[in-house]
Write a protein that binds this DNA or RNA. Structure first.
Length: 729
DNA sequence: TCTTTGCGAGTTTTT
DNA sequence: CTCGCAAAGA
């Protein structure tokens, strides 16, 4: 029997979407073009499965790549089914879902359920210690090493297998794995890697989850890496009810190990698989759809698909050429104001998308100047603050006392470096964790040479921590966190002694509360930490410059972050060779195609209007560079759907362009052309992020260092290469 | 032991 | 410039 609600399920769908939803059993792959109602298909399918077919919601596993997508899906479903049913669905990101399973099954792997999650900073610091300990002098930075290890893990390559190919990295990798195990810590890749390990070595556990997850749905399948795909294959092996949705044209995470061949090879893994295509675009105007089709046609590697639309033609895709990045930003700002006046558009209907985060500075400044409220998506800044990192170190050792990174972070502030080193050596010799040594301090301190004061300090510290841990056992996250803060306020005279801290704490909790729909009511401290460390990267940072209008803001973000979103008007900025496509992508055709897909993603975010901008000169990384317009602009040279707002900008044919790219001497010559107005010059007015307004008094002969007189803070030497400086013309 | 100073390195995209 | 680290100074 169908309720009226269930009828609504069908009314908003077209016939091909309905067909996709009605096929429940067996492997299914849906190739869904941009704007074809992908999310709607997944959400309605889930609702249909539960309400019409009667499938138990706890048998459903739905995986997404971003927290944003998971949240969006939950919201949409929640309007159509019972709350109790919603809670039973396993819906979330790969990392979130499998970190939960690892918590439940951790005993198989020798971990505590309260294992710590290491972020990249933690991993880097572990690598640094390893390099120190092993006395290795590699040419690779810890960052590069951890990226390499990450790549291996995502391809399920163990250090043992690696030994033959790259001994040096393999040894570091091995040490890293052992240290993480000892600390009971998992990094992002471990969450997937260990899940694979679990399923591979413990068939009974695998069987349990195969039985539980009878129906598996995966969004953005083109972004799965090997590690993820293997988990899925194992889980789906028994019931084979696997439903994946993807668009090869929108694969933009190859640098993270995403492998398009997963989508191309789906029918090899499941030869009975049914293939559906969703090709009608509901999002964008005809001109935008045409332009994006044109762009993607330049890629050789792709599945056959023809995205089309019945929507109105709309305006042409606009291309604007500015003289400098400052002028580019001004154009964007004034164009927003103009469109707002002319139409009913609000701030929130606009998005400004860029390739690299660094491009946001000038735009932010200009928007502020023109009093346009905006918000910027990116990493959260408050976690970078020292107090917060300290506080979280305490949180983490409360849930997992073996977490070496966090413990050392704290101890370093209490005793000297030398003492820390002595303890570390002791821990190594005795093969005990640092926390164990401190806990049985009476047995251990006679073994090392330290003075009485230090000895007492540590003794004091550990007994207080142990007391508190005992007292707070099993309390909820909020109570524990509050007690820790109080404890710190009493103990340490340093930085936190005011309401400031309470405010920050409230912020953290509010943030996690916002994620609650994803977190299914887990209120333990380790649950809190898990969601915090898995979600924190994606939190949006809102810069308030208009208190009255909390929700109506222009969005600024990288194109990567914009995936899955849509806006009426989209600005894609900085369309210049070496920036977009990025410099490092130019050496291989494969990387270049990924950049093109990235551009495709950007363009297809737009519903009504897309505006592409590029500059002739850009002040980037300390140099004034004369830019060549991006090849993507060239690829759109079709009068039908493109409108060049201001000029006959100097187009180069593709052949000329590539010859310029290959010829580095001509590029150097271009770099040295400085007749543009917004570049540093004596007497020019500037604005500095910290020092405010000023005037350039002098420049060195390479134009690298400027002497600037600031109205407020006086004379300063400024390194142009790195200062976030805005130069007025 | 705590604070100050000085130096080198770093810019693609992120779960 | 900003961050982190190491060595010198108080």
């Amino acid at each position: 029997m169908r309720s009226s609600n269930a009828d609504n399920i069908w009314s908003s769908l077209n016939s091909s979407q309905r067909k996709v939803i009605k096929t429940i059993d067996g492997p299914i792959i849906v190739i869904a073009g941009a704007g074809s109602g992908k999310t709607r298909v997944i959400t309605h399918r889930i609702v249909h499965m539960i309400k019409n077919i009667g499938i138990d919601p706890s048998n459903i596993l739905a995986l997404t790549f971003t927290n944003k997508a998971a949240k969006e899906m939950k919201n949409r479903i929640s309007n159509m089914i019972k709350q109790t049913d919603l809670r039973k669905i396993s819906l979330g990101t790969f990392h979130y879902i499998f970190s939960g399973i690892l918590r439940k099954e951790s005993h198989w792997l020798g971990y505590s359920p309260n294992y710590t999650i290491y972020d990249q900073k933690d991993s880097e610091s572990v690598i640094k210690k390893i390099l120190n300990d092993l006395n290795l002098n590699t040419s690779f930075s810890p960052k590069k090493i951890i990226r390499k290890i990450s790549e291996y893990k995502n391809n399920l390559f163990t250090y043992k297998k690696l030994r033959k190919f790259n001994k040096e990295i393999s040894i570091i990798y091995e040490n890293y794995v052992k240290r993480c195990l000892k600390a009971e810590a998992l990094d992002f890749d471990d969450i997937l890697f260990h899940t694979n390990h679990l399923f591979f070595h413990f068939p009974n556990v695998l069987k349990k989850y195969q039985e539980k997850f009878k129906y598996i749905l995966i969004d953005e399948y083109q972004d799965t890496n090997r590690s993820q795909n293997t988990i899925i294959k194992n889980l789906a092996h028994q019931h084979r009810n696997i439903f994946v949705v993807g668009d090869d044209a929108q694969s933009i995470y190859a640098f993270r190990g995403a492998n398009i061949s997963n989508i191309l090879n789906f029918h090899m893994d499941y030869n009975e698989a049914k293939i559906f295509r969703l090709e009608q675009n509901y999002r964008s105007t005809n001109h935008i759809v045409q332009a994006s089709n044109k762009i993607i046609s330049f890629n050789k590697n792709q599945l056959f698909k023809k995205v089309w639309t019945n929507n109105e033609k709309g305006e042409e895709v606009k291309i604007y050429s500015a003289s400098s990045e400052r002028k580019e930003a001004e154009y964007i700002a004034s164009h927003i104001l103009y469109l707002k006046k002319k139409t009913k558009l609000q701030n929130k209907d606009f998005a400004i998308l860029y390739r690299a985060n660094i491009q946001s500075h000038v735009i932010e400044h200009t928007l502020k100047e023109k009093k346009i409220p905006y918000k910027i998506y990116g990493s959260i800044s408050f976690y970078k603050r020292k107090e917060i990192r300290d506080l979280f170190a305490y949180f983490r050792i409360f849930t997992n006392s073996n977490d070496e990174e966090s413990l050392l972070h704290i101890i370093k502030k209490i005793v000297s470096k030398k003492t820390v080193e002595l303890i570390l050596t002791l821990s190594k010799n005795e093969d005990k964790t640092v926390y164990t040594i401190l806990k049985k301090w009476k047995n251990y301190y006679p073994l090392i040479k330290i003075n009485k004061k230090t000895k007492n300090k540590l003794e004091n510290f550990i007994s207080k921590i142990e007391n508190l841990r005992y007292k707070l056992n099993d309390q909820n996250a909020y109570i524990i966190a509050k007690s820790i803060v109080n404890f710190l306020l009493k103990e340490n005279k340093y930085y936190y002694n005011d309401n400031d801290f309470q405010y920050i704490l409230d912020n953290i909790f509010r943030y996690v509360k916002e994620q609650e729909p994803l977190n299914n009511g887990d209120i333990s401290l380790s649950g809190f930490l898990r969601s915090f460390f898995l979600f924190k990267e994606k939190e949006e940072e809102v810069i308030i410059n208009d208190e009255n209008n909390e929700y109506d803001k222009v969005s600024l973000m990288t194109i990567h972050l914009s995936k899955g979103l849509e806006f009426s008007v989209v600005f894609i900025v900085g369309l210049e060779e070496n920036l977009f496509p990025s410099k490092s992508s130019l050496d291989t055709p494969l990387k270049l195609e990924e950049e093109r897909r990235l551009f495709y993603v950007a363009l297809t975010r737009a519903q009504k209007k897309a505006i592409l901008t590029y500059t002739k000169y850009r002040f980037l990384w300390g140099k004034k560079i004369q830019n060549i317009p991006s090849r993507f602009i060239n690829e759109l040279q079709e009068k039908k759907f493109v409108d060049r707002e201001n000029q006959k900008c100097f187009y180069l044919s593709t052949t000329t362009q590539s010859s310029i790219n290959n010829n580095s001497s001509s590029r150097i010559r271009r770099d040295t052309l400085f007749h543009e107005k917004t570049f540093p010059k004596k007497g020019r007015k500037v604005f500095h992020k910290n020092f405010g307004e000023g005037i350039i008094l002098d420049l060195d002969n390479k134009n690298e260092i400027a002497i600037i007189k600031f109205h407020k803070s006086g004379r300063k030497k400024i390194l142009l290469k790195l200062a976030k400086l805005i130069i007025y013309s």
